[in-house]
C-alpha cells in the first residue's frame, strides 16, 4: 500500500496534497496495490470524501484534539503508529513547508532515509525510483531506497492531478492517544502576510520583478497583473528583496524559493545563475528586459527587448482582452 499524507490548512486539504495522492495512485497502479490517504486533525472527517476522487481507496482519519495545532512531534507520532499498524511500502508527502518539516522527523523515527523534493517518480523491480534536483537543479539525481518503508516528498506544482478517480471508498477513523507532555514545538498562531493569497510555490503563474523595477512602488504594477491573471503570485529577484522593495517570502532562486509554475514572467531581471536555479523548471518563461544580452533571454520562450515601464501597461490591456474572451 502507498500511504499519502494530506495536509490541511485553514480547514481545507491542500492542492499539492492532491497532486501527491494522484502520483501515489499512479505508482500504486504500477505496483498492483492501493493508494491510501491519511488526514490528521480534529473534526476533519468531512475532508475524506474529496480524497477518493484523487485516487485514495481508503482514508485514515487520525483524531485527537491536540492535532488542532500542528507540531512535528505529535504528527510524526501519529503517522508512526499508523505505519506500524498498516505497514505501507511507500509513504509520500508534498514538499510544502509542513511536508518538509514532518517527513524527516517520521523517517528518523522509522530509521529510514528520505528523498526530498522529488520531481519524477517511477517504479523499478517492484520498488520506487525517484529523481530529485540537487545543486538547486543544476543536476538531477536518480535515487532508490535500501530501507523500507520508502519515503519521499514531492515538489508542489509538478505532478498532474488525477482526473477521473473513484466516487467513494472506505473511511477508517482512529483515535490516537498522545500524552500532552509529548507534544513538543507546537504552532501557537499563524500570521498571514497581508494581501498574499497564494505563495509563489503554489501559483500557476509567477510574475516577478528585479532591480529593473526601480522601486518599491513599481511592484504595484506587478500586483495589478496578478489581480487579473488567475492563480498568480508576485515573485522577485534577490536584488529587489535586498533593496526591501518586497518581502523575502517572494524571493525566487537558489536562496529563495524554487518554483515550477506553468508560466514565469520576468520583468527587469537579468537572469543570474542563482535566479535561474529557482525558476528554470517553469513550463514557460517570458521576459521583458531592455538589455538584449541579458541571460534571462537564454532561457525565455518569448522575450521582449524593451522598457518594462512601457510594456507592462500595454501587456495588462492585452491580457485583459485575452482573458475576457
Amino acid at each position: 500500500m502507498i500511504l499519502v499524507f494530506i495536509e490541511i490548512r485553514d480547514g481545507k486539504a491542500k492542492k499539492s496534497s492532491f497532486e501527491a495522492l494522484s502520483e501515489g495512485k499512479r505508482r500504486a497502479d504500477d505496483l498492483n496495490t492501493e493508494a491510501h490517504a491519511v488526514l490528521i486533525g480534529h473534526g476533519v472527517e468531512g475532508l475524506a470524501s474529496e480524497l477518493f476522487s484523487y485516487g485514495a481507496s481508503k482514508v485514515y482519519v487520525l483524531e485527537n484534539s491536540l492535532f488542532a495545532h500542528y507540531s512535528a512531534s505529535s504528527y510524526s507520532q501519529a503517522l508512526h503508529s499508523l505505519t506500524e499498524e498498516e505497514k505501507p511500502e511507500i509513504i509520500l508527502f508534498s514538499a510544502t513547508s509542513m511536508g518538509k518539516d514532518l517527513a524527516p522527523r517520521l523517517a528518523a523515527k522509522l530509521g529510514v532515509s528520505l528523498a526530498s523534493e522529488c520531481t519524477v517518480t517511477s517504479t523499478k523491480e517492484g520498488k520506487l525510483e525517484v529523481t530529485r534536483p540537487i545543486f538547486a537543479g543544476k543536476a538531477l539525481a536518480t535515487v532508490t531506497f535500501k530501507s523500507s518503508p520508502q519515503i519521499a516528498s514531492l515538489r508542489p506544482n509538478v505532478f498532474p492531478l488525477l482526473e477521473d478517480g473513484a466516487k467513494d471508498g472506505e473511511v477508517v477513523k482512529k483515535e490516537v492517544v498522545i500524552p500532552e507532555d509529548q507534544v513538543k514545538g507546537r504552532v501557537e498562531e499563524t500570521l498571514r502576510e497581508e494581501g498574499v493569497e497564494l505563495d509563489v510555490t503554489e501559483a500557476d503563474v509567477v510574475i516577478s520583478g528585479g532591480r529593473g523595477m526601480k522601486g518599491q512602488e513599481n511592484f504595484d504594477l506587478l500586483k495589478e497583473l496578478t489581480s487579473i491573471v488567475p492563480h498568480s503570485a508576485v515573485g522577485a529577484s534577490r536584488s529587489a528583496v535586498d533593496a526591501e522593495w518586497i518581502d523575502h517570502q517572494h524571493q525566487v532562486g537558489q536562496t529563495g524559493k524554487t518554483v515550477s509554475p506553468n508560466l514565469y514572467m520576468a520583468f527587469g531581471i537579468s537572469g543570474a545563475i542563482q535566479h535561474l536555479a529557482g525558476m528554470s523548471s517553469s513550463k514557460f518563461i517570458v521576459a521583458v528586459n531592455k538589455d538584449p544580452e541579458a541571460s534571462i533571454f537564454k532561457v525565455a520562450d518569448f522575450g521582449i527587448v524593451g522598457d518594462l515601464f512601457q510594456v507592462i501597461p500595454l501587456l495588462k490591456e492585452e491580457l485583459k482582452k485575452a482573458l475576457s474572451e
Binding site: L140, V143, T144
Partner: peptide, 19 residues
Amino acid sequence: LLEVTKIESPPQRQAGKIV
C-alpha cells in the same frame, strides 16, 4: 540507505523567440 544510481544534467532550455 539511499542509493544514487545516476546523476545527470538537467535538460537544456532552448532560447525562444526574442522580439
